[in-house]
Design a protein around this nucleic acid. Structure first.
Lengths: 376, 376
DNA sequence: GATCTCTTTGCAAACCTTTGCAGTGAAGTA
DNA sequence: TACTTCACTGCAAAGGTTTGCAAAGAGATC
């Protein structure tokens, strides 16, 4: 029933190889023949069978997208951008959700490996060594995790955390809490490291609470601890937690930002809609999705992964980029941060309320590109 | 480099067909042989090549999920549930985003047809006739659209609209606006039909504003119209639009719910987080995703789609369900609705403020199952 | 001991495409 | 005219798996 290359060949009176070439190497076939074949193909509604093509070329024209939690609003813009970018390059995207589970991640990479030309690992919870091991099975691009020797797309949350802490310190906060993210999260470690350093530099004290699930519930559950810790400002791992915290503090009768200032990370759509509107570190999510796909497919035209007689070519030519792209973040000041107890007093950085509100501008272009192309 | 069935056969000293059977028809191979083969396969890290398998069986063990807009928070829970359910049945999921574009939808179905065993069409914008035509190319399950002769998963937004209008009328509203959704949306038509009937029954007047893009911006853009229409209550196509409207009204200095009551549809996570919290018609999104996958895969073990010698079996056996499943919705009353100008006066349904707040319970089970299994 | 049945295994074709190689014929060159 | 070059096309193998058929061997039955 399904129409194959053979049907097109019969209809247009040429050999199947000519039909094949009409699609995959048009310059090799006579223009007249080409239009005839194309017309027949159109007529019959022929579409090349990708499975058969994959079998021989070794390239599936599919990529895998492994996501910690699709329901986390951080990810949909990334998925959308990646899917769109992939489709422009004639790739289709498998999406899989791990529920924040490292074991599921590993299994998914294995399961997808044979079906895709590469996998985007978004905010993985696995160990670095496991990721490295898996990268020998299938090309990997890692988002939100830094790994030597692997292509990574990073968001500069360190810079974001610094900006946030400086903003808070500038407002006169000295006792700041950090709501950590999930165990295994590179972003959470980065945040902690940078926020700690920035706090020290600003003469503020940083209390780390967590790890926590990166959800609204995770933030809500920490409201009590935040109050008990006696801090006047909080930096949360992400907006979802910040919003949960907003709710929790509200329930406890703690006013934001009058009594406690709250800063999130991500700038999800939601963060503009809460009351108070959330001050947050905007991350260029869509750009990350696009960039990751581009990095994965960088060499797609040059080097087939396997295929007939390709043994040597693969060994010699299958270079993989290990470039690491760092995308800029930006502090977006809204209504959830306000002057704290030391406002106006002397002290490092206690100058002003910082620069006025920013509009988020998705940078789209990397600020830092490190690494190089090496033979794998 | 990649390990094939041949490597396993060599390692375990049997023919490749025996290895194949070990995986796809274990009962046909001697238990001793089986464990040996399994051990070798495990050792070598063998995974069957799905493309090769698909080539001969005609079943890819993939499904396609075509989504109007991944960034619309209505969809991620559906995607997540569908992906999870599919994976339990050993299927992988292609996700594709159409950007609310009917032409993109059609192209995507074509592009995916050869690569999947079926496609879930979520909230399609195409015409019915086009969907029917495409369903001859690849098995389709349609979500949020009613189509005779095709399996559909519907949410009872008609009932939801009735509840919402009755709730508003009960609160004493007589001038109600409906913010319609996008052109081509079945849900929007249903909403309009049911809300119109319910309004008439309650002696209220319904003004339809739209069509509108189903986004926050779409709702925001209608705030001015809403004020000018002089209505005291609004039912929006979805929560996103309702939230946009909330913002727009706020900007215009119109207080919600004191001056205007607002009701959304979907009960996305966000709707609990706005101020005021949004009264909305909860739709069982996750259940819809699960159900749709189940309907698509209902016969997957019984009837291969194509394959050697399968001609007759297909013609006779490839029955497709055309069952239509209707999932219940539920009005969740929060803080964006309040008594209107006719509160307490006589009039149909003007009794009380309704049945008090509900907690959303994802029904998970269909309330109505219609249709039957027919040979296609 | 011959025949039959049943379980287990091997053989080889088939799925649809790509691609190296060789063949054809025409145009160009000496 | 004889030879080379070139553009185009056909041939056939290959990719990894499934599966109908047949063969082999072990018991069971008579």
């Amino acid at each position: 029933m399904p129409v194959t290359i053979r049907d097109v060949a019969r209809a247009s009176g040429v050999h199947i190889s000519t039909v094949s070439r009409t699609f995959s190497a048009p310059h090799l076939v006579n223009p007249e023949t080409r239009v005839r074949v194309l017309a027949c193909a159109e007529d019959l509604g022929y579409r090349p069978n990708r499975a058969a093509r994959a079998l021989i070329t070794g390239r599936t024209h599919n990529i895998g997208l492994i996501i910690a939690d699709i329901a986390n609003p951080f990810f949909p813009p990334l998925i959308k951008a990646a899917e769109s970018q992939a489709r422009h390059r004639d790739y289709h995207v498998f999406v899989a959700d791990t529920n924040e589970d490292a074991a599921a991640e590993e299994e998914l990479v294995h399961a997808l490996a044979k079906q895709v030309d590469g996998v985007l690992l978004c905010s993985p919870r696995m160990s670095n060594s496991l990721i490295e091991q898996l990268s020998r099975e299938v090309p990997l691009v890692v988002v939100n995790r830094q790994l030597a020797g692997l292509p990574c797309v990073l968001m500069d949350v360190g810079q974001g955390a610094r900006s946030a802490i400086e903003h808070l310190a500038g407002l006169g906060h000295r006792e700041i809490a950090l709501l950590a993210g999930p165990r295994g999260s590179w972003t959470s470690r980065e945040l902690r490291r940078a926020a700690g350093a920035a706090a020290r530099a600003a003469g503020a004290e940083l209390t780390v609470l967590g790890p926590n699930p990166p959800t609204e519930a995770g933030g809500l559950a920490q409201a009590e601890q935040v109050r008990r810790a006696g801090v006047t400002a909080v930096l949360a791992y992400n907006d979802l937690m910040a919003i949960g915290l907003l709710e929790g503090l509200d329930a406890l009768g703690v006013r934001v930002p009058q009594e406690v200032s709250v800063v999130g990370v991500d700038d999800i759509t939601l963060s503009r809609l809460t009351r108070p509107k959330l001050t947050t570190v905007a991350t260029p999510t869509a750009a990350a999705g696009r960039t990751a796909v581009d990095m994965l497919l960088q060499h797609d035209t040059e080097f087939p992964r396997t295929g007939r007689g390709g043994g040597a070519a693969v060994a010699v030519g299958a270079r993989r980029t290990t470039a690491q792209v760092m995308l800029q973040t930006e502090l977006v000041i809204r209504d959830s941060t306000a002057p704290g107890p030391y406002a106006g007093r002397d002290g490092p950085g206690a100058t002003a309320a910082g620069p006025g509100p920013h509009r988020r501008a998705d940078p789209g272009t990397p600020s830092v590109v490190a690494g190089d192309v090496v033979a794998s």
